[in-house]
Design a protein around this nucleic acid. Structure first.
Length: 428
DNA sequence: TCTGGGGTCCTAGGACCC
DNA sequence: TCTGGGGTCCTAGGACCC
């Protein structure tokens, strides 16, 4: 038996934890650079289709309706997320942290428990200790737990908790009949359209479709989903976080870049971020790719190109990677465009030590040189203690914090992670 | 003026091997 | 006239997730 615990509009809810005055107001949270709406509470969602829409198009409407608008505050969300997952881990023997705002719990071996009741106590606990609203879905597979969670959020009479296994088979089917096939975990836009076209509209329809038909017309991925809807688990909990196979670092620029040197610095900075993540998982990479592009939403001249290169010796050294990255950039750079975004991918990742040496290459430059390794370690330590970007390579530019500041006009305080921004309570 | 930033898995087809 | 039967590896593209 599996449970899925998922916070309701997590980012928006985080913003209310230290702001009781926001009760009853519509709330939205914006993406980086205050670009799109990436989270909205129930009141804001009621305005219509606003999720992932550009903020500037809706700003006026939102303001007129008294909406509280926030730039994303990942320090706050990350910290509250960590607290939530720590709390939830106490309710089961096994936990899979699936994303920033949701986790699976394994209830195997607890057959005699009253799960609906247990789900309620989980929900109340998170509200009491963290002030965050969550929904709990329980079922005999991960897909069913996800579906139950979704239904629990949709039907107010369930009060945020649904255990499908506590229902009769007919009752379960009735619930699944009320769930759109597009809302099933693993069924996205494309597939839901194709499923609709052959008459499969609800979760129940999909559950009852012959498995061979699904395999033939779709793939083994959807076949597994159908099995899971029928209560046959095809996926277990992922208890160990696997190392990343690729690490991406990308950002849109606040202002467009025309100048090669500026672009070099931006690319160097993204590489440095990615390399830091790579070292955190104690990995080395063998491939680096660089992509630059203009703004596709503008009618100006468009250019979008990428280049990649292999490293002779796998590395996680920022300097080596920047050097290779610069080569990539040189190959794709074209003068005269207004560049809006750069993207860097580190791939072909492995552990250091598992390394195929090149007979003729200069090992001293690329191997796990102890001096450069410890230099990177020192830089990482300084940055983790003193703040990101405190210590960096010259290639990243000498005023990296101010040269392309991210637009975040509406950021709330980092109530739980920054001494200066702790909430203050006044006694009357 | 203004449009996010990450990830994974599977499949088909081409190139190669004996 | 006529052209087998197994494999592996790599890549691009398509689907999905938050």
């Amino acid at each position: 038996m599996f449970a899925l615990v998922d916070a309701n509009s997590f980012y928006a809810s985080c913003e209310t934890v230290f702001r009781p005055d926001l009760a009853g107001r519509p709330i939205v949270v914006l993406s980086n650079n205050d670009g799109c709406i990436v989270a909205a509470n129930k009141r804001a969602k009621a305005f219509g289709n606003i999720m992932y829409q550009p903020y500037f198009q809706l700003a006026k409407m939102l303001e007129q309706k008294g909406t509280a608008v926030f730039s994303s505050n990942y320090e706050l969300y990350g910290d509250l997320s960590h607290r939530m997952h720590t709390l939830l881990s106490q309710f089961a023997i096994e936990q899979e942290v699936y994303s920033i705002d949701e986790c699976f719990l394994n209830f195997t071996g607890m057959q005699h428990w009253n799960f609906t009741h247990y789900g309620q106590s989980i929900k109340q606990s998170v509200m009491k200790q963290l002030g965050l609203p969550v929904a709990v879905g329980i079922g005999s597979s991960k897909t069913l737990a996800k579906a139950a969670n979704n239904i629990a959020k949709q039907l107010p009479e369930l009060e945020g908790v649904l255990c499908l296994s506590d229902l009769s088979p007919a009752g379960q089917n009735q619930m699944l009949a009320g769930l759109n096939v597009a809302d099933i975990w693993g069924v996205g836009q494309r597939w839901s359209k194709r499923l609709n076209a052959i008459g499969i509209e609800t979760a129940l329809d999909l559950k009852q479709t012959p498995i061979k038909k699904i395999r033939k017309q779709f793939s083994v991925v959807l076949e597994r989903t159908v099995h899971e809807l029928n209560g046959i688990p095809c996926q277990s909990l992922q208890l160990v976080i696997p190392n990343k196979q690729q690490i991406i670092s990308s950002r849109a620029f606040n202002k467009t870049i025309r100048d090669y040197k500026n672009m070099q610095q931006a690319v160097a900075r993204y590489i440095a971020r990615a390399a830091e993540k790579l070292r955190q998982q104690n990995g080395v990479c063998k491939q680096i790719s660089v992509n630059i592009m203009t703004n596709p939403f503008q009618s100006t001249a468009q250019y979008n190109n990428w280049a990649s290169t292999s490293l002779i010796y796998p590395s996680n050294h920022t300097g080596h990677l920047i050097e290779r990255g610069k080569h990539c950039l040189k190959r794709i750079w074209k003068e005269g465009y207004e560049y809006k975004k750069a993207l860097v991918i580190l791939s072909d990742i492995s552990e250091p030590g598992i390394m195929q040496y090149d007979l003729f290459a200069d090992k001293a430059r690329y191997s796990n040189n102890k001096k450069t390794d410890s230099l990177m370690q020192v830089i990482d330590k300084i940055n983790s203690r003193m703040g990101k970007g405190t210590c960096r390579l010259a290639a990243e530019g000498n005023n990296s914090k101010s040269s392309w500041p991210m637009q975040r006009h509406r950021q709330s305080s980092r109530y739980t992670t920054c001494w200066k921004e702790l909430p203050v309570a006044y006694l009357k």
